[in-house]
Simulated assay, not measured.
Amino acid sequence: MGMIRTQSLRITPAILTAIAEIDEFKGAWRALGSLAPERLSALRRVATIESIGSSTRIEGSKLSDQDVQRLLSNLEIKTFETRDEQEVAGYAQVMDVIFASWREIDVTENHIRQLHRDLLRHSTKDERHRGAWKTSANSIAAFDEAGHQIGIVFETASPFDTPARMAELVDWYNAACADGELHPLLLIGIFVVIFLEIHPFQDGNGRLSRVLTTLLLLRAGYAYVPFSSLESVIEQSKEAYYLALRQTQGTIGSEEPNWGPWLTFFLTALQRQMRRLRAKVEREKLMLGSLPEISARLLDLVRDHGRLTIGDAERLTGENRNTLKQHFRGLVSHGHLVLNGAGRGAWYSLQ
């Protein structure tokens, strides 16, 4: 299988435990996923907004989840003023494509380039190179506060080597899936870390790696993935994410690559994504039938934003202010939410 060496892969107890827990949830999802369709689509909507917000912020965007939500409710606009908005619009559209068509999107070089083109379709500065392998070096550099480069963190593949490295990665992944010796989650983790080490495109590699992770998980049967945001888990542990990447990436070209740091991080992140969803679904089950639809949506929003004002709720749900006040009052009196502050500045949080 070319130069991708997995013989040195050590399966630690932590890795085994994470895989077992994730697979158990994957099996149970059929029963758990039997929530009412509108609840499922509400979960997916919230997760998608979180994913887009987090994934673009990891790369330096300044848009909050509320900004993303506003932008997405207005996607008919075809021109986006800022680079951040262009990136969010592209990310949202690619996620839609993945959710709708993952069965048809095989892991091929063409499909990877096509997803890259779609991801950057609104990005004016990336017009020249979207959908094409890089043509100039893009090693990962460190910068000081003033924006001056202070050193190279690590060298990515050269533009000359990139096409061959990507062909090798895609062939290895498809062959390894077919022979079934390694667990699919390990294969996906290894694919992602090598993709990021190659850094095959001039820009957008980080965002595309997270889109590809979702695609590969769906294709491997992890049907619950659209309902909980892996990107927001990664955003909350950004330092650990970069550290694990560097620790493994520095060894990929060696005789015995050290897959452990990255796979441990990756599987722990998947575990947290799954546990968040499990907790949400369990709460849904407890409340199913006992809460009106608007109250359930408000609870979702508070859970996902941490705090919510009446104004936020009005903007995010489109419901009438008095109706919302009534539902908030009910949620407070039943002990689901707490009212903080008073008057205009009042906000609600979880009990």
Rank of each mutant, 00 (worst) to 15 (best):
Gly60Gln: 04
Val46Trp: 13
Met166His: 01
Glu76Ser: 15
Thr48Tyr: 00
Met3Ile: 12
Leu218His: 01
Trp102Glu: 11
Thr309Pro: 06
Arg344Trp: 00
Arg10Asn: 10
Leu217Ala: 01
Ile19Ser: 11
Leu298Trp: 11
Pro261Ile: 02
Glu239His: 15
Arg219Tyr: 01
Ser254Leu: 09
Met1Arg: 10
His183Ala: 00
Leu63Arg: 03
Val233His: 08
Leu286Met: 05
Glu50Phe: 06
Ala42Pro: 03
Ser209Arg: 02
Asp179Thr: 06
Glu24Ser: 13
Arg297Pro: 01
Asp106Arg: 14
Pro200Ser: 11
Ile198Tyr: 03
Asp126Cys: 10
His336Met: 05
Ser64Ala: 12
Ser41Ala: 13
Asp304Ser: 15
Thr264Glu: 05
Leu217His: 00
Val281Phe: 05
Leu182Ala: 02
Leu267Lys: 10
Met95Gln: 14
Val281Cys: 11
Leu115Gly: 01
Thr317Val: 01
Ala100Arg: 11
Ser64Asp: 13
Gly147Gln: 10
Glu255Pro: 05
Leu337Glu: 06
Ala89Leu: 09
Gly330Leu: 09
Asn320His: 01
Arg207Gly: 03
Gly204Thr: 01
Val153Ala: 04
Phe265Trp: 05
Tyr242Pro: 09
His336Pro: 04
Lys285Asn: 08
Pro159Ser: 08
Arg297Thr: 10
Val153Phe: 07
Thr214Phe: 00
Glu197Gln: 15
Ile294Ala: 12
Arg39Leu: 09
Asn258His: 07
Asp161Asn: 12
Gly289Lys: 12
Arg344Ile: 01
Phe265Thr: 02
Ala141Asn: 12
Thr12Arg: 14
Pro184Asn: 08
Glu255Ile: 05
Ser73Phe: 07
Met166Asn: 01
Pro163Lys: 02
Ser158Glu: 09
Ile11Asn: 09
Thr309Gln: 14
Asp203Gly: 03
Thr213Asn: 09
Tyr242Ile: 04
Lys285Gly: 08
Asp300Arg: 07
Gln271Arg: 15
Leu35Ala: 14
Gly253Thr: 06
Thr323Lys: 08
Leu16His: 10
Glu109Tyr: 00
Trp259Gly: 04
His305Thr: 06
Asp144Asn: 15
Arg44Tyr: 03
Leu212Lys: 02
Asp179Ala: 09
Leu71Thr: 07
Ala178Cys: 03
Ser123Ala: 06
His183Phe: 07
Thr214His: 05
Ser34Gln: 15
Pro159Ile: 05
Arg103Asn: 15
Ala175Trp: 09
